[in-house]
Simulated assay, not measured.
Amino acid sequence: MRRRHLAALFSAAMLSAVTARAQPQAAGTIRMVVPFPPGGASDVIGRIVAEQMRDRLGMPVVVDNRAGASGNIGADIVAKARPDGLTLLLASASTHGINPTLMARMPFDSRRDFTPVSLVVMVPTILVVTASLPVRNVDELIAHARANPGKLNYGSVGNGTTQHLAGVMLRERTGVDMVHVPYRGQNLLVPELTTGQIHLVFNNIAAVRAGIEAGQLRALAVALPERWPTLPNVPTFAEAGLQDFQVSSWLALLGPAGMAAGTAESYAAAVRAAVADRDVRARLIQAGGLPIGSAPAETESFIHNEIRSWGRVVRAAGVRVE
Protein backbone atom coordinates (compact mmCIF):
# COMPACT_ATOMS: atom_id res chain seq x y z
CA MET A 1 0.00 0.00 0.00
CA ARG A 2 2.71 2.50 0.99
CA ARG A 3 4.73 1.75 -2.13
CA ARG A 4 1.72 2.33 -4.41
CA HIS A 5 0.93 5.57 -2.61
CA LEU A 6 4.49 6.83 -2.91
CA ALA A 7 4.67 5.81 -6.56
CA ALA A 8 1.52 7.80 -7.32
CA LEU A 9 2.89 10.85 -5.52
CA PHE A 10 6.24 10.52 -7.32
CA SER A 11 4.51 10.38 -10.71
CA ALA A 12 2.43 13.42 -9.87
CA ALA A 13 5.55 15.29 -8.78
CA MET A 14 7.12 14.79 -12.20
CA LEU A 15 4.30 16.76 -13.81
CA SER A 16 4.25 20.57 -13.77
CA ALA A 17 0.57 21.38 -13.37
CA VAL A 18 -1.01 24.82 -13.57
CA THR A 19 -2.63 25.54 -10.22
CA ALA A 20 -5.18 28.03 -9.02
CA ARG A 21 -3.92 31.32 -7.64
CA ALA A 22 -3.85 31.21 -3.85
CA GLN A 23 -6.11 33.69 -2.06
CA PRO A 24 -4.97 34.49 1.49
CA GLN A 25 -7.60 33.87 4.16
CA ALA A 26 -5.81 35.37 7.18
CA ALA A 27 -4.21 38.73 7.97
CA GLY A 28 -0.93 39.02 9.86
CA THR A 29 2.40 37.22 9.96
CA ILE A 30 2.51 33.45 9.44
CA ARG A 31 4.78 31.60 11.84
CA MET A 32 6.13 28.38 10.32
CA VAL A 33 7.44 26.11 13.06
CA VAL A 34 10.26 23.84 11.85
CA PRO A 35 10.72 21.23 14.61
CA PHE A 36 14.37 20.57 13.78
CA PRO A 37 17.63 22.56 14.16
CA PRO A 38 18.76 25.23 11.68
CA GLY A 39 20.96 24.18 8.79
CA GLY A 40 19.56 20.73 8.04
CA ALA A 41 17.51 19.66 5.03
CA SER A 42 14.20 20.34 6.84
CA ASP A 43 15.27 23.87 7.72
CA VAL A 44 16.56 24.68 4.23
CA ILE A 45 13.42 23.36 2.57
CA GLY A 46 11.23 25.12 5.14
CA ARG A 47 12.86 28.45 4.35
CA ILE A 48 12.35 27.97 0.62
CA VAL A 49 8.66 27.22 1.24
CA ALA A 50 8.30 30.19 3.61
CA GLU A 51 9.79 32.50 0.98
CA GLN A 52 7.44 31.18 -1.70
CA MET A 53 4.36 31.44 0.51
CA ARG A 54 5.27 35.01 1.37
CA ASP A 55 5.57 35.94 -2.30
CA ARG A 56 2.43 34.11 -3.40
CA LEU A 57 0.16 35.03 -0.49
CA GLY A 58 1.45 38.56 0.03
CA MET A 59 1.92 37.88 3.76
CA PRO A 60 5.07 37.79 5.92
CA VAL A 61 6.18 34.25 6.78
CA VAL A 62 8.82 33.65 9.46
CA VAL A 63 10.55 30.37 10.27
CA ASP A 64 10.74 29.39 13.93
CA ASN A 65 13.10 26.46 14.68
CA ARG A 66 11.88 24.54 17.74
CA ALA A 67 13.89 21.32 17.87
CA GLY A 68 13.70 18.49 20.37
CA ALA A 69 12.00 15.18 21.18
CA SER A 70 12.23 13.96 17.56
CA GLY A 71 10.17 16.92 16.41
CA ASN A 72 7.49 16.66 19.09
CA ILE A 73 8.36 19.94 20.82
CA GLY A 74 7.71 22.02 17.73
CA ALA A 75 4.69 19.96 16.71
CA ASP A 76 3.14 20.41 20.15
CA ILE A 77 3.46 24.19 19.86
CA VAL A 78 1.37 24.12 16.69
CA ALA A 79 -1.12 21.58 18.07
CA LYS A 80 -1.90 24.03 20.90
CA ALA A 81 -1.89 27.21 18.79
CA ARG A 82 -4.95 29.22 17.81
CA PRO A 83 -6.42 27.92 14.52
CA ASP A 84 -6.34 31.36 12.90
CA GLY A 85 -4.10 30.37 9.99
CA LEU A 86 -1.07 32.18 11.39
CA THR A 87 0.74 29.16 12.87
CA LEU A 88 1.88 26.26 10.69
CA LEU A 89 4.02 23.18 11.24
CA LEU A 90 6.52 21.70 8.81
CA ALA A 91 5.68 18.14 9.87
CA SER A 92 7.77 15.10 9.00
CA ALA A 93 7.76 11.31 9.00
CA SER A 94 9.00 11.55 12.58
CA THR A 95 6.24 13.75 14.00
CA HIS A 96 3.41 12.26 11.95
CA GLY A 97 4.55 8.77 11.01
CA ILE A 98 6.95 7.20 13.48
CA ASN A 99 6.44 8.99 16.80
CA PRO A 100 2.78 8.02 17.33
CA THR A 101 3.89 4.39 17.77
CA LEU A 102 7.46 4.95 18.94
CA MET A 103 6.65 7.28 21.84
CA ALA A 104 4.97 5.81 24.91
CA ARG A 105 3.47 9.25 25.68
CA MET A 106 2.64 11.81 23.02
CA PRO A 107 1.75 15.42 23.94
CA PHE A 108 -0.71 15.58 21.03
CA ASP A 109 -2.75 13.37 18.74
CA SER A 110 -1.12 13.30 15.30
CA ARG A 111 -4.47 12.89 13.54
CA ARG A 112 -6.95 14.80 15.71
CA ASP A 113 -4.92 17.89 16.66
CA PHE A 114 -3.90 19.13 13.20
CA THR A 115 -5.41 20.44 9.97
CA PRO A 116 -3.67 18.97 6.90
CA VAL A 117 -2.56 21.52 4.30
CA SER A 118 -0.11 20.11 1.74
CA LEU A 119 2.59 17.51 1.33
CA VAL A 120 5.58 19.63 0.29
CA VAL A 121 8.38 17.19 -0.56
CA MET A 122 9.48 13.62 -0.24
CA VAL A 123 12.95 13.41 1.34
CA PRO A 124 14.39 10.20 -0.11
CA THR A 125 16.65 7.93 1.91
CA ILE A 126 19.89 6.96 0.20
CA LEU A 127 22.13 4.10 1.33
CA VAL A 128 25.79 5.10 1.34
CA VAL A 129 28.92 3.33 2.54
CA THR A 130 32.32 4.72 3.42
CA ALA A 131 34.64 4.49 0.42
CA SER A 132 37.04 2.16 2.23
CA LEU A 133 34.39 -0.56 2.49
CA PRO A 134 35.02 -3.09 -0.34
CA VAL A 135 31.46 -3.16 -1.71
CA ARG A 136 30.00 -1.50 -4.80
CA ASN A 137 26.34 -2.52 -4.71
CA VAL A 138 23.66 -3.79 -2.35
CA ASP A 139 24.31 -7.46 -3.12
CA GLU A 140 28.00 -7.07 -2.25
CA LEU A 141 27.11 -5.21 0.95
CA ILE A 142 24.79 -8.01 2.06
CA ALA A 143 27.38 -10.67 1.20
CA HIS A 144 30.08 -8.73 3.09
CA ALA A 145 27.84 -8.30 6.14
CA ARG A 146 26.96 -12.00 6.17
CA ALA A 147 30.63 -12.93 5.95
CA ASN A 148 31.45 -10.55 8.83
CA PRO A 149 28.55 -10.86 11.32
CA GLY A 150 28.48 -8.11 13.91
CA LYS A 151 31.48 -6.31 12.44
CA LEU A 152 29.68 -3.71 10.32
CA ASN A 153 28.05 -0.74 12.00
CA TYR A 154 25.55 1.75 10.67
CA GLY A 155 24.87 5.21 12.02
CA SER A 156 21.73 7.24 12.58
CA VAL A 157 20.72 10.49 14.25
CA GLY A 158 18.88 8.60 16.98
CA ASN A 159 16.84 5.60 18.00
CA GLY A 160 13.53 5.33 16.19
CA THR A 161 14.50 7.64 13.32
CA THR A 162 13.97 6.64 9.69
CA GLN A 163 17.74 6.01 9.50
CA HIS A 164 17.62 3.57 12.41
CA LEU A 165 14.47 1.81 11.21
CA ALA A 166 15.89 1.45 7.68
CA GLY A 167 18.76 -0.58 9.16
CA VAL A 168 16.26 -2.68 11.12
CA MET A 169 14.30 -3.34 7.94
CA LEU A 170 17.46 -4.37 6.08
CA ARG A 171 18.33 -6.77 8.88
CA GLU A 172 14.86 -8.30 8.85
CA ARG A 173 14.77 -8.60 5.07
CA THR A 174 18.24 -10.09 4.62
CA GLY A 175 19.30 -11.51 7.99
CA VAL A 176 22.46 -9.40 8.17
CA ASP A 177 23.92 -8.74 11.62
CA MET A 178 24.96 -5.08 11.92
CA VAL A 179 25.51 -2.83 14.93
CA HIS A 180 23.44 0.36 15.24
CA VAL A 181 25.35 3.47 16.39
CA PRO A 182 23.10 6.47 17.23
CA TYR A 183 24.51 10.01 17.08
CA ARG A 184 23.23 13.35 18.32
CA GLY A 185 23.00 14.97 14.89
CA GLN A 186 24.33 15.02 11.35
CA ASN A 187 27.31 17.18 12.34
CA LEU A 188 28.68 14.19 14.27
CA LEU A 189 27.36 11.37 12.10
CA VAL A 190 28.57 12.42 8.65
CA PRO A 191 32.25 13.10 9.57
CA GLU A 192 32.46 9.70 11.29
CA LEU A 193 31.09 8.10 8.13
CA THR A 194 33.40 9.89 5.70
CA THR A 195 36.46 8.96 7.77
CA GLY A 196 35.38 5.33 8.06
CA GLN A 197 34.64 5.28 11.79
CA ILE A 198 31.25 3.87 10.84
CA HIS A 199 30.61 1.86 7.72
CA LEU A 200 27.25 2.85 6.30
CA VAL A 201 24.20 5.01 6.79
CA PHE A 202 20.68 5.45 5.44
CA ASN A 203 20.50 9.24 5.15
CA ASN A 204 18.95 12.08 3.20
CA ILE A 205 20.72 13.05 0.01
CA ALA A 206 21.59 16.60 1.08
CA ALA A 207 23.51 15.35 4.12
CA VAL A 208 25.80 13.03 2.16
CA ARG A 209 26.01 14.68 -1.27
CA ALA A 210 29.36 16.39 -0.58
CA GLY A 211 30.91 13.11 0.57
CA ILE A 212 29.65 11.33 -2.54
CA GLU A 213 31.01 14.06 -4.83
CA ALA A 214 34.37 14.02 -3.03
CA GLY A 215 34.67 10.25 -3.41
CA GLN A 216 34.62 9.68 0.37
CA LEU A 217 31.27 7.92 0.20
CA ARG A 218 29.77 5.45 -2.25
CA ALA A 219 26.01 5.55 -2.97
CA LEU A 220 24.42 2.11 -3.36
CA ALA A 221 20.65 2.67 -3.65
CA VAL A 222 17.90 5.24 -3.19
CA ALA A 223 14.47 4.57 -1.67
CA LEU A 224 12.18 5.92 -4.38
CA PRO A 225 10.06 4.37 -7.14
CA GLU A 226 12.39 6.01 -9.70
CA ARG A 227 16.00 7.21 -9.67
CA TRP A 228 16.88 10.58 -8.14
CA PRO A 229 17.23 13.25 -10.87
CA THR A 230 20.74 14.39 -9.92
CA LEU A 231 22.08 10.88 -9.21
CA PRO A 232 20.99 8.97 -12.33
CA ASN A 233 23.61 6.23 -11.88
CA VAL A 234 22.38 5.23 -8.41
CA PRO A 235 19.75 2.45 -8.65
CA THR A 236 16.55 2.31 -6.66
CA PHE A 237 16.28 -0.37 -3.98
CA ALA A 238 13.89 -2.27 -6.24
CA GLU A 239 16.49 -2.25 -9.02
CA ALA A 240 19.06 -3.38 -6.46
CA GLY A 241 16.91 -6.40 -5.56
CA LEU A 242 15.02 -5.16 -2.48
CA GLN A 243 11.40 -4.73 -3.49
CA ASP A 244 9.10 -2.39 -1.51
CA PHE A 245 11.97 -1.02 0.60
CA GLN A 246 10.27 2.35 1.14
CA VAL A 247 11.92 4.16 4.05
CA SER A 248 12.00 7.74 2.85
CA SER A 249 10.92 10.71 4.92
CA TRP A 250 8.80 13.68 3.86
CA LEU A 251 7.79 17.20 4.88
CA ALA A 252 4.23 18.53 4.97
CA LEU A 253 2.52 21.72 6.08
CA LEU A 254 -0.12 21.36 8.78
CA GLY A 255 -2.09 23.82 10.88
CA PRO A 256 -3.79 23.40 14.25
CA ALA A 257 -7.08 21.53 14.38
CA GLY A 258 -10.01 23.76 13.55
CA MET A 259 -8.22 25.92 10.99
CA ALA A 260 -10.67 27.10 8.34
CA ALA A 261 -10.93 24.85 5.29
CA GLY A 262 -10.62 27.86 2.98
CA THR A 263 -7.35 28.88 4.63
CA ALA A 264 -5.92 25.36 4.28
CA GLU A 265 -6.96 25.24 0.62
CA SER A 266 -5.39 28.63 -0.16
CA TYR A 267 -2.12 27.69 1.51
CA ALA A 268 -2.09 24.36 -0.33
CA ALA A 269 -2.64 26.21 -3.62
CA ALA A 270 0.37 28.41 -2.83
CA VAL A 271 2.52 25.33 -2.25
CA ARG A 272 1.33 23.69 -5.48
CA ALA A 273 2.04 26.86 -7.44
CA ALA A 274 5.50 27.07 -5.92
CA VAL A 275 6.53 23.47 -6.67
CA ALA A 276 5.28 23.84 -10.25
CA ASP A 277 7.85 26.61 -10.78
CA ARG A 278 10.98 25.29 -12.51
CA ASP A 279 13.45 27.33 -10.46
CA VAL A 280 11.79 26.46 -7.16
CA ARG A 281 11.73 22.78 -8.06
CA ALA A 282 15.45 22.92 -8.83
CA ARG A 283 16.18 24.55 -5.47
CA LEU A 284 14.14 21.96 -3.58
CA ILE A 285 15.84 19.08 -5.40
CA GLN A 286 19.24 20.62 -4.65
CA ALA A 287 18.21 20.72 -0.97
CA GLY A 288 17.37 17.02 -1.11
CA GLY A 289 13.59 17.16 -1.46
CA LEU A 290 11.43 15.86 -4.30
CA PRO A 291 8.68 18.51 -4.82
CA ILE A 292 5.13 17.17 -4.49
CA GLY A 293 2.34 19.62 -3.58
CA SER A 294 -1.04 18.13 -2.64
CA ALA A 295 -4.52 19.16 -1.60
CA PRO A 296 -5.56 19.00 2.08
CA ALA A 297 -7.64 15.84 1.61
CA GLU A 298 -4.76 14.05 -0.14
CA THR A 299 -2.40 15.16 2.61
CA GLU A 300 -4.72 13.80 5.30
CA SER A 301 -4.96 10.42 3.55
CA PHE A 302 -1.19 10.27 3.10
CA ILE A 303 -0.45 10.99 6.77
CA HIS A 304 -2.97 8.43 8.02
CA ASN A 305 -1.34 5.84 5.76
CA GLU A 306 2.12 6.81 7.06
CA ILE A 307 1.06 6.36 10.68
CA ARG A 308 -0.21 2.87 9.89
CA SER A 309 2.82 1.90 7.79
CA TRP A 310 5.49 3.19 10.16
CA GLY A 311 3.56 1.76 13.09
CA ARG A 312 4.03 -1.72 11.67
CA VAL A 313 7.77 -1.12 11.22
CA VAL A 314 8.24 0.26 14.74
CA ARG A 315 6.32 -2.60 16.33
CA ALA A 316 8.29 -5.16 14.32
CA ALA A 317 11.54 -3.51 15.41
CA GLY A 318 10.49 -3.66 19.06
CA VAL A 319 11.58 -0.05 19.59
CA ARG A 320 9.90 2.08 22.26
CA VAL A 321 10.78 5.44 23.80
CA GLU A 322 9.39 5.97 27.31
Results as ranks from 00 to 15, higher is better:
G196H: 10
Q197G: 04
Q197K: 11
I198M: 15
H199G: 09
H199M: 12
H199T: 04
V201Y: 00
F202Y: 14
F202P: 07
F202G: 08
N203G: 01
N204R: 09
N204C: 09
I205N: 01
I205C: 00
A206P: 03
A206M: 14
A207C: 07
A207V: 06
A207E: 05
V208M: 13
V208L: 06
R209L: 10
A210K: 15
G211Q: 12
I212K: 03
I212V: 12
I212T: 08
E213N: 12
E213V: 09
E213A: 13
A214Y: 01
G215P: 12
Q216E: 13
Q216G: 13
Q216R: 15
L217I: 11
L217S: 03
R218T: 15
R218V: 12
A219H: 14
L220P: 13
L220I: 09
A221F: 12
A221C: 07
A221W: 12
A221K: 03
V222M: 09
V222R: 03
A223Q: 02
L224A: 15
L224F: 11
P225R: 01
P225F: 07
E226H: 09
R227M: 12
R227K: 11
R227N: 14
R227H: 15
W228C: 06
P229E: 03
T230H: 11
T230L: 11
L231Y: 02
L231H: 04
L231E: 05
V234S: 04
V234K: 07
P235W: 10
P235Q: 15
T236A: 11
T236C: 12
T236E: 14
F237L: 15
A238W: 03
A238S: 10
E239Y: 04
A240L: 09
G241L: 06
L242A: 06
Q243F: 04
D244Y: 08
D244E: 14
Q246D: 09
S248C: 02
S248N: 10
S248Y: 02
S249C: 04
W250K: 03
W250P: 01
L253S: 04
L253E: 11
L254A: 14
P256G: 09
P256F: 10
P256R: 02
G258D: 12
G258L: 09
G258W: 14
M259V: 05
M259P: 00
M259K: 02
A260C: 05
A261S: 15
G262D: 10
T263P: 00
T263Q: 07
T263R: 01
A264T: 07
E265T: 06
S266C: 08
S266V: 08
S266M: 11
Y267N: 00
Y267I: 08
A268T: 04
A269Q: 13
A269I: 01
A270S: 13
R272D: 08
A273D: 14
A274K: 00
A274M: 02
A274C: 00
A274D: 00
A274E: 00
A276Q: 06
A276P: 03
A276Y: 00
D277S: 03
R278F: 08
R278S: 08
D279Y: 04
V280R: 01
R281Q: 11
R281D: 06
A282S: 15
R283K: 06
R283V: 00
R283C: 00
L284C: 10
L284D: 02
